[in-house]
Structures are given as C-alpha cells and as structure tokens.
Write a protein that binds this DNA or RNA. Structure first.
Lengths: 350, 350
DNA sequence: TTGTAAGCGTTATCAT
DNA sequence: ATGATAACGCTTACAA
C-alpha cells in the first residue's frame, strides 16, 4: 500500500491507532489490546493508565482490523421486505434493543423497492462475510436464496414466518386467526366476510394461507357458510384494505355483518372507507384485525395482538447467545397472541 | 494469531479467500483483486477465467480485510431517534434505496429506547471507524455529541431538522406550517386551535418551534386571535393527538372550528377521538396536518405533504458523492412541500 | 498485462 | 504481567 510513513497525516482525531496508545502509555500493543477489552493479565495500574491515555487520545479500535483478526464483525444483519410497515419497523426496534445492549451493530438489508436485483444481496453486497448472524423478517426466500444462506453457515433465525429448515419465532397464526373469527361468531355473527392477505407476491409466504385456512375451518366448525363473494384480498396495507372494502360493498346482494381482516392495517382501511361511505362500525359492520398496531387503540380496533418487537428481541438474543458459544440457543419458539376487544366489534344489529 | 496453517478447516463454503481464487485460477492475488473489482489492467481472458473461478468457489471479498486495506468500510450509518414512526421509517427506506444502488451497506443506530446510555453510541460502539459517512435523521444532538461527530471528520448530513454547523436537508417548516394555517383561514375559519409538537424531550429540536411560530405569525397577520386554551401539545404520535383533542374538547367555553396539527399522526389522533366523541370532521371541526402520512389519503386528511424518503435519498446521494471524491457535494438544500386538500377541511359551519 | 511484496490495525500465541 | 511477532485477507505501489 505504501502510504506515507508518518502518523497523523490528517490533522484531526481520526487516525489514532493502538500503536499510538501503546507508545503514549509506554506499553506494547498487546497490553493495550487486553486493557481496552477488559481482558485479564493486565495489572490494575497499567490498565488504568492505558484507559486514561486511550480516553483522551480518543482511541477506538478499528472494527475492520479487529474483524480481520478475530473473524467476527460484531454486527448482525436484519433482512426485511419493508421497513415502513408496522410489523417490520417494530421488529427492527426490538432487534436493535438487544443488539445495542450487547454491543453489536445492526446492518439493515431492505428487500423492498429493489426490483429484481434482489439476488445481489445474497451474493456480493450482503451477508457474506459482513455479518456474524442473520435475522430474517418474515418473507419467502427462493430456494436458491436459502441455499445461499445455508452455505455461509452463520446462525440464522426467521421472525414472523416459516422458512423451511430454519428456526422461526412467531405467533401461532392459525390459533390467532381462529381466535379472531371465533370472537365474531361468539358475538352472534353468521355473515362474516374475509379480507385475506395477498398470496401472490414473492415477498409473502404462508402466513396468509394459514390465516385463510383458520377462517374457513372455524366457519365450517360453526356450520357457517363462507361466500366467495365475501372473500376479498389485500396486501396488508391500509389502502389495500380500503380498496377491498369498496369492492366488497359495491357488490350486489346481501352484506356481511362482520369482517375478519388478516392485518390491522387492512382493518383500518376498511374502517376508514366504511366511515366515508356512511357504513357504521360496529353497528352495521363489525371489524376485527390481527396485530394490535400502534394506531389500533386510538381507532378502537378489536384485534388479536402480537408483539413483533419482542419476537425479534428474543430471536436476536438467541443469535447472540449462539455466537457467544452457547450452541443450541437458536431454536424455534411460538410467541403469544391475545384477543383485545375494543369498539369495532359488537353483536350484529337485530 | 497462529491458527492452523491449512485452508478450509470448516467443511463448507465459508473461508474461500482471494488466495484460493488466485491459486485455482493460476494467477496472483493482485490480479484477482483487480478482476473482481472490475478494475482495468486485466486481460479479458484472464478476467473471465477469474470471474468464473470466483463464481463457483463462491468467493466474496472479506469486508474487514478490504476495509482495513482501503480505510473504507463501504457502509454508512443512519442515526434515528425512532424507527417505527412514519418520518423515520420512510427516510430509512429512502436512504437504503440510494445505498443499495451504489453498493453500500446501511448501519442503523437507533437512539430511541436506549435510556441514558446514548453516549455509548458516540464513543465506542458506533460511528467511529465503522462507517464512512453519517446520515442523521432529525433530532437534537447535545453539544458534546456534536463535537464527537465533528472530530471524526466523516461526511455528515442531517435530514429533517437543523443542527448547528451541519448540512441539512428538509422542508421549509415555516412555509409549510404557514401554508396549512393559511388554508384554514382561506376557508373562512377564525377560531383555530393549535396542536403543536412537544418541545421538551431531548430528542426534539426546533422544528416544533418553527411550526408554532408560523402559526402565530399567520394568525396575527390575519388579525386573528390565538387563544392559550386552544393551544395543545403532543409528541407527534397518534395517541398524543388523541389525548390532546380530549383535553381541548373538555375545556369549558367556545370551541374552535378548526385545528392545525404539527403532524399527520397527531391529526389522525384528533380525528379518531373526534369521531369517538361524536364531533364531526369537517362539519364541526376542520383538521389539517403536516406530512402526508401513508394513511392520510385513506383517512381523507388534508395536509401539507413532504417526502422524507426523497430527502434522505438526496442526502445519501450527497454523502456518497462526497465519498466518491466530489468534494463539496454535501450541502444544505430545502425540500419541497405541497398542500393536499382532502376531506377533513371545509368552510366553518354557518 | 501481470506479479511481488509492503502495509492496513488488530488479535493471539508464545516467550519472557 | 508484559512484550515480540505472526497471522488475518485484502489493496496497491512498483517492478517486471
């Protein structure tokens, strides 16, 4: 490389290395390394001196250098299909809590909005040799992507959805959806519509399917019909819920008295649109969602709540424990969900 | 370090280094380095061969090693007070777009929820020597923190708010707020309440102040009174807007016919609570916000829109350009805003 | 066009 | 308890 041989070329604080500290403290770099990392084999006096010197020299170890030497980057990757949707942003916050507490960095890989060159993530830019472990926020992975991840055998856990052969943390979607639907039925509803999540985009996976299945099973178990014309879909967003309601309500024929939505954002979409069209909630239509979105309480939305932040936090903890040598820490776990009854559900009118 | 001398200790794909590729391709590491990075001085034939070999060996350069050698980490840091609030999550997505396109990584530093040990971010864990540049999403920084950042002289830009001596990208808050208030006045409102952002937490800064100022100036210019009892505050969230409305409406005396909210989330809070209390929007109360939140259209919220994603994308571009050697690329810029009239504002009743 | 080799800032082994 | 020093995997003058 042959740079200038002199230190502190740049005027500032920028380039203080372990050697500078060693020199200033009159010890070897090895001792500085031990001292600053809190390792044993350094006398209290020496350590203190080194810490002082390091302190006012503003020394911080180069992550690249220590990464090279140790093989650890001290950062974990978080792979998400979106960051501005509730589930993901909450999960990211949760992961960050644990990472921050344990002095790791969080490298965010957003798969959304990148069109097709998604694969680049898996080969060059990303993952590979940049991170010590990977947290995947629910989404489908292609078979190829999976293989890729498997090859670089770093700890890996997925939150919020199932990926074959991977540890996952998440609620029991079947049970959660069943709870929501059963709540409607217990209220006396018989004409229940379904607003299910989209099945088609490659960013989704089987959560939508499971929730649909639960809906149908519960309805069937209650000997209630499920009408195809009351089966709408959305992509988990508010606008898609809004559009779905508009479609549903513009159809000729009888109207349902309740609707089960596969996410709170979609549920809010139907509520907003219902209000706009003069359809009263819950008098004319009961609405239940899944998630307990930050806005759900303000909207009065009845929902089955989950805590993506806690799920991601737990997942991250597992990852970090595994890295700390506690092998076997990474394992699947089911997270709790809970029915939260608010003001958007009520017995059907008459 | 004295590890085992043999390569591929772990069975897998994991440790293929540049030397492995060089050996397999029958060239030197220098040539491999040039080849994989697309540098000149490699014959087409050699390059192709190397690329092939690298390809099926699954070679990816170690970021630590190249970071050490070049002094660049190829990752930029994003500092945010929250990730699950609209402005920030959108900004993160925007930054990510540009970073991804230019092959950089995004390291996320969330200041929220970390209680007091916020300072650790600035000293050890973070920033220092881990990132090539820093994108600060609006928030106040302590003087000390600022100094810290200044010392490590990496390119730095703040989005969404002013930080002394730093380049910033954001809308003209004074103009945006003025536009919103003027819209209300143009509609014929005279009794206008203010829901301003919180001023007190250390995570905030002067955006709230500027918006308040604009409100007062515009009102005064229109010879309209601003009543202290119609001045409420919130922390930019939906629940706080909800609470603010409850407080406002439970006060004795006359009610305003319109309210200007310093953010869409707060505006939605008042709308939700108004609906709950039977106060009709816009018949009884016009509501205007700032942001054009993802949900604003569905709610029919009149607002002054801004695009945090584009702001962050631009800021990131500047940062990257600067790193690419185009010095002077980082500079302040004002982002556009636009009044979007929807259904929550109307002339006052009678 | 290609190869040689020094250097990047740590960590960790082994001696002392 | 401390110090030399090799090694980590890459980049980049410089020589060939």
């Amino acid at each position: 490389m042959a740079r200038t041989n002199e230190r502190s070329q740049r005027g500032g604080h920028s380039g203080v290395s372990i050697e500078d500290v060693a020199a200033a403290a009159g010890v070897s770099t090895a001792t500085v390394s031990r001292a600053v990392r809190g390792l044993p084999r350094v006398s209290p006096a020496t350590r203190q001196k080194i810490l002082d010197v390091a302190g006012d020299l503003g020394y911080v170890a180069s992550s690249s250098a220590s990464g090279l030497a140790t093989g650890r980057t001290k950062t974990i990757g978080v792979l998400a299909p979106f960051v501005s949707r509730w589930f993901f942003s909450k999960a990211i916050e949760g992961a960050d809590r644990e990472l921050h507490a344990r002095n790791y960095n969080l490298s965010l890989f957003n798969l959304g909005g990148h069109g097709s060159n998604r694969e680049r993530l898996f080969s060059k830019t990303m993952v590979y040799k940049q991170i010590d472990a990977l947290l995947v926020l629910c989404m489908a992975l292609t078979h190829e992507e999976l293989e890729h991840l498997q090859k670089i055998d770093i700890p890996l856990v997925v939150v919020g959805g199932h990926v074959e052969e991977c540890a996952y943390i998440g609620i029991d979607d079947y049970a959660a959806a069943s709870t929501a639907v059963r709540h409607l039925i217990d209220l006396g509803h018989r004409d229940i519509a379904l607003l299910h999540g989209d099945d088609e985009t490659d960013l989704n996976f089987d959560v939508p399917r499971v929730r649909i299945l639960a809906f149908k099973d519960v309805m069937m178990a209650a000997a209630l019909p499920t009408r195809p014309e009351w089966d709408e879909w959305g992509d988990f967003t508010v606008p898609s819920g809004q559009a779905a309601f508009r479609r549903l309500w513009s159809k000729p024929g009888a109207k349902p008295t309740a609707i089960f939505c596969a996410s709170d954002e979609m549920a809010m979409g139907v509520i907003f649109e219902a209000s706009r069209l003069g359809v009263r909630v819950p008098e004319d239509l009961s609405v239940v969602g899944i998630d307990n979105h930050d806005f759900a309480e303000a909207v009065g939305l009845t929902t089955v709540g989950q805590r993506p932040d806690e799920q991601a936090e737990l997942a991250t903890k597992m990852l970090l424990d595994e890295l700390d040598g506690q092998i076997g820490s990474v394992q699947s776990a089911v997270a709790p969900h809970e029915l939260i009854v608010r003001r958007t559900t009520a017995p059907p009118q008459s």
